[in-house]
Design a protein around this nucleic acid. Structure first.
Lengths: 107, 107
DNA sequence: TGTATATATGAACAGTTGTTCAGATGTAAT
DNA sequence: ATTACATCTGAACAACTGTTCATATATACA
């Protein structure tokens, strides 16, 4: 590596430091199988907490906790519908990210 | 949600359970800013442990620990070059995954 | 108003993770 | 052989994470 390359890389790493933190933070959300399953279920249809809980065979409480994380990260949104609170994906970035990871696994 | 939809989603979640575990496992590797920075540095050029350590201002020991994780996940490979051990990405899936996440952040 | 249903919340706990430190290993050069 | 250099390793520790349990909140319905 010549000194030009070194200083170029050094700049990239240093200048984008917070960006890498954000990126790690984003991937942290996908780094749990319950959350991945929830997100994947939501790519199929919007649904309420109880349904998610049944689909994944996970405690309603656990689902609720995870949904709070997903919501505060703006990956899902919620609306009340009668007795239920229905969750859905905020956009299709989620699907893109999941697909991207799946592609790596399927090798 | 009609009963057809329910059983379809149920099948998807149940059948791919291990796949979701793998996916979460993969994202777990990207879920740390040190590792993301290491991987990003390696997208620019192969380099040895000491260089990575300087670029990121992280202990050489910490880098070595992280590299072991990255290597055992087959995201990086290593070769000896004189006194140094030079690390590089095994393929360009890594870059794809990083770019995919970056795209989500940049909104 | 009272009761059932759906969801959210907080404390507690066990399990995991990333870093540091001290020292081991291995290679190169004299 | 001895020394210097580069990297690896394992133990220890603090910080963080996901689940569970018990309970609170909030809406619907009788």
């Amino acid at each position: 590596m010549d000194s030009n390359t070194i200083s170029r890389i050094q700049t990239i790493i240093t200048k984008n430091s917070e960006l890498f933190d954000e990126l790690a933070q984003l991937y942290k959300i996908f780094a749990d199988s319950s959350r991945v399953k929830i997100l994947c279920a939501l790519t199929q249809s919007e649904m309420c907490v109880g349904e998610i809980s049944e689909f994944l065979s996970i405690t309603q409480s656990a689902v609720s906790h995870q949904l709070r994380i997903l919501k505060s990260s703006n990956l899902v949104k919620s609306k009340r519908q009668g007795k239920n609170i229905v969750y859905s994906l905020t956009d299709d970035h989620v699907k893109t990210i999941i697909d991207c990871g799946m592609e790596h696994i399927a090798e």
